[in-house]
């Protein structure tokens, strides 16, 4: 089995932004966007997310798999839950409203009535802008952040060394464990084990992965003794750590951080002081369904 990181250097604008500034911006955006359903604010934030995504210069080919997963999630959340089954949309959308098809419609010669309202349809669009906006920001991370940068970044953002280094070490283990898993799978296959072939109930089916799970986990635990020794023997955790990975703020990073603060504070003020958090359908949207 192949486990590959998706990162490679693209010389994109994103590659020139300090990872710390990127995380700060991403979180500021996350907390800003989840405060409001106001159409203008959401549209503005969504536009910012699109610009941000474009700065990563991630090709469609690279990111396709991620987007497929996200489309699946968006589909089940928005199309299935909000539009088809018509959930109450978190108490955001007031009950009642204008039906999209007030007179019903005919399909295959039959007359149908369907309770989708214009308000709920707009709510679905707002949901899409919100979640897609967040996705646009965060889906970039695996493609544009060097796996060597995580430890240094989180440490410089204030996380204790040990925690920051845990992240770095986890990256180191992933390919080894993936290979161990493949070896264990082969070793058990050589003893006639067939993962796919299961009879029996749920418990039997779940327990079927024990011949894979147990050797892999126990082997990992046994090797951690050597690894902990190797770390202690090279002075781990005895002093404040420095990091090989160089992080350097440039003026544009400060601009980005300032912008992040303005964005978060601005949206918070608009929402709480000026009451711009509430859900509303823009007037022009009704005109589509006025007939």
């Amino acid at each position: 089995m192949l486990v590959a990181w998706n990162y490679h250097y693209r010389n994109s604008p994103m590659d020139h932004i300090d990872p710390r500034a990127r995380w700060i911006f991403s979180f500021a955006f996350l907390f800003a966007v989840t405060q409001t359903w106001n159409p203008q604010l959401l549209a503005g934030l969504f536009a910012i997310a699109l610009v941000w995504y474009a700065m990563g210069r991630v090709s469609w080919k690279d990111a396709r798999r991620g987007w497929l997963l996200i489309s699946f999630m968006l589909f089940s959340m928005i199309v299935v839950n909000t539009i088809i089954t018509g959930g109450g949309a978190g108490g955001v959308v007031p009950p009642g409203g204008q039906l999209v098809w007030p007179d019903g419609f005919s399909l295959f010669g039959r007359h149908l009535t369907y309770g989708l309202t214009v308000e709920r349809l707009w709510f679905a669009i707002s949901q899409l802008m919100r979640i897609l906006g967040i996705s646009l920001l965060f889906i970039l991370i695996p493609y544009t952040m060097d796996s060597r940068a995580y430890g240094a970044t989180f440490s410089k953002l204030g996380l204790p060394d040990r925690l920051a280094y845990t992240m770095e070490l986890a990256f180191r283990f992933i390919p080894s464990l993936a290979r161990n898993l493949a070896v264990t799978l082969d070793a058990q296959k050589a003893r006639g084990f067939e993962l796919e072939k299961v009879r029996g109930g749920l418990i039997k089916k779940i327990a079927r992965i024990a011949p894979l799970l147990i050797p892999l986990t126990m082997n990992a635990i046994l090797s951690s003794e050597d690894i902990a020794n190797a770390m202690d023997l090279r002075g781990f955790g005895q002093r404040k750590r420095t990091w090989l990975f160089a992080l350097q703020y440039h003026w544009w990073d400060w601009v980005l951080i300032a912008f992040s603060v303005v964005l978060l504070v601005g949206v918070t003020v608009l929402v709480h002081a000026l009451g711009m958090g509430g859900f509303a359908v823009p007037a022009w949207f009704y005109t589509f369904f006025a007939g």
């Binding site: 796996s147 060597r148 770095e168 070490l169 990256f171 180191r172 090797s223 050597d226 690894i227 020794n229 190797a230 770390m231 090279r234 002075g235 781990f236 955790g237 005895q238 002093r239 404040k240 750590r241 420095t242 990091w243 090989l244 990975f245 160089a246």
Partner: peptide, 23 residues
Amino acid sequence: RQILGTYVLNEVCFGLESLGLPR
């Protein structure tokens, strides 16, 4: 079981990072 870095240079520098040496 004792290589700690994902890249060779990171591995070689592990102990030096622990000692807190400048880059």
